[in-house]
Simulated scan of single mutants.
Amino acid sequence: MPSDPLFDSQESLVDRKKILSYTRILNHLFEHGSNSIAKLAKEIHTSVPSVTAMLDELKQHEWVREKGASKTKSGRRPVNYGINGSKKVALVLDINLYETNFIFINLNNEIITKTSFEIDLEKETYLKEIIREVDQLLKINDQPWAIGISAPGLIETESGLNYTHQNLNKENKSLALVLEEKYKLHVFNINDTRASLLGEHHYGLARNKKNVLLVNLDWGVGLGILHNGQIVEGAAGFAGELGHVQVYPDGELCACGKIGCLETVASASTIVRKAKAGLKEGKATSLNQENKDLFLSDVIAAAINGDEFSIDIIYEVGRELGKGLAMAVHLFNPETIIIDGILKNAGDLIVSTVKQSINKYCLVPFKQNLDVIISPLGDDAKVYGTKSFVFKKMMEYYAN
């Protein structure tokens, strides 16, 4: 595994304590941005001379750099220090149901390269094709610091196994472990919805907030939960599977094998399925009825352009989603709900109907001052969050 000279020496207790202090400084700067020596000393409960010495060493190893002086009313202005964003580059695998993105990104969220690969996640050869693509990318890019994998489905925290998409596992090994053994790099798995929430927490609409829900409206429905400033994972890492809460006991069969899950009435798959059924029945619509391949983007575009049939479908999905979210609002009492995923492209068509439904099904005290918004970060939130997850895990590795 690639190492860093700053963290190599762990021979004595003093060395280990010093390395632990390095990681605490770096974690603080990563999460909070630049800070002065005095404030850092206060935050990590260490003396000013000790922090000064450690910052000097971190500067020598190019982990931190000076970020300018703080504004003060009088006296000498203290110098602020921050993470050197170009120090490390991570490779992020952003896995979606029908497309996988390979992104090299530095600690400043600057994307070095991005490659998209269209392949169905349920395809049996998925793992082989992904590894072949990583092989090619590592030949033309410098070796990354580590790899972060964002993927949909139930991902167990300890093993990294994906219980929803079995093609991401090989012989009871997670994709992360398979790549780690092959490339001798640190590789970490995170659920895609949780990655998006982590990105929002560090860089977006959940920054400086303590209670936020992020609903991932994709081909399924995922829920990211920020509760009292902490992202909720659950005992095994499965927290937030809102899409598999039963809302209709006599409803349709879900892909998970259960009946009447929220995903059967409130997802991108629902919209496409309803649109195809309506076309088959001869409903009046501006959608091209001769086109055998109907895509979600077609329905959203038609709705935005005023097609009543398409608007009604999105309205129904938003209404059902709002019902499901009302349960989550009553459980977690959030200050903000962030709409993410492919359905965010429907904009106010989906947000307004979700708001109406929450307004109808939530108790008054819960919906007062509750914002329902689409993040301007969009798909970048997931990439930024995965990179942040990699940073956190690498700091844990150095500390231990």
Score class of each variant (00 low, 15 high):
208 N>M: 06
266 A>G: 06
271 I>C: 08
223 L>N: 07
291 N>R: 07
307 D>G: 02
238 F>G: 01
317 V>K: 08
333 N>G: 02
325 L>G: 08
312 D>I: 07
320 E>T: 12
206 A>H: 13
328 A>T: 05
246 Q>F: 05
252 E>M: 05
272 V>I: 09
232 V>R: 12
225 I>Y: 12
300 I>C: 13
333 N>I: 06
204 G>F: 04
253 L>Q: 15
278 G>M: 05
246 Q>G: 01
286 S>H: 10
207 R>L: 15
267 S>R: 00
202 H>Y: 01
319 R>Q: 13
330 H>W: 08
290 E>F: 00
305 N>E: 12
208 N>D: 15
229 G>N: 09
296 L>H: 08
286 S>A: 07
248 Y>I: 04
321 L>P: 02
281 E>R: 04
251 G>D: 13
334 P>V: 10
259 I>E: 08
264 T>Y: 01
253 L>W: 13
263 E>L: 07
310 S>D: 06
216 N>D: 11
269 S>L: 03
279 L>A: 02
229 G>V: 08
226 L>E: 09
216 N>M: 13
317 V>W: 11
218 D>C: 13
288 N>V: 06
307 D>L: 00
328 A>K: 01
267 S>M: 00
234 G>T: 08
267 S>P: 03
236 A>V: 06
304 I>R: 11
318 G>D: 11
272 V>P: 07
244 H>K: 02
309 F>K: 01
332 F>G: 13
223 L>E: 05
218 D>W: 01
267 S>E: 04
257 G>Y: 09
293 D>L: 12
265 V>R: 10
224 G>S: 00
234 G>C: 00
333 N>L: 15
285 T>C: 09
270 T>R: 04
259 I>N: 15
271 I>L: 06
285 T>H: 07
218 D>Y: 07
211 N>C: 08
305 N>A: 12
203 Y>N: 14
208 N>V: 09
323 K>H: 13
206 A>F: 13
208 N>G: 02
303 A>I: 04
226 L>I: 06
316 E>H: 00
274 K>S: 14
322 G>V: 08
225 I>L: 05
243 G>V: 00
330 H>G: 14
294 L>C: 00
257 G>D: 04
218 D>Q: 04
215 V>A: 02
227 H>M: 01
295 F>M: 05
216 N>S: 10
281 E>C: 02
311 I>R: 12
288 N>M: 04
237 G>L: 03
288 N>E: 10
317 V>D: 10
234 G>F: 02
252 E>S: 14
249 P>N: 02
288 N>G: 11
293 D>V: 13
308 E>M: 05
277 A>G: 07
264 T>N: 09
234 G>I: 04
243 G>M: 00
206 A>P: 09
260 G>I: 09
208 N>K: 10
319 R>D: 14
232 V>C: 09
299 V>R: 03
284 A>M: 06
320 E>K: 07
270 T>V: 12
307 D>H: 09
305 N>R: 03
276 K>P: 10
207 R>Q: 14
217 L>R: 01
288 N>C: 13
281 E>A: 09
321 L>Q: 08
214 L>K: 07
278 G>T: 03
255 A>T: 14
273 R>E: 11
271 I>R: 05
232 V>I: 13
235 A>K: 02
265 V>K: 04
227 H>Y: 12
289 Q>P: 09
222 G>Q: 01
236 A>H: 02
293 D>M: 07
217 L>Y: 11
247 V>W: 02
265 V>L: 10
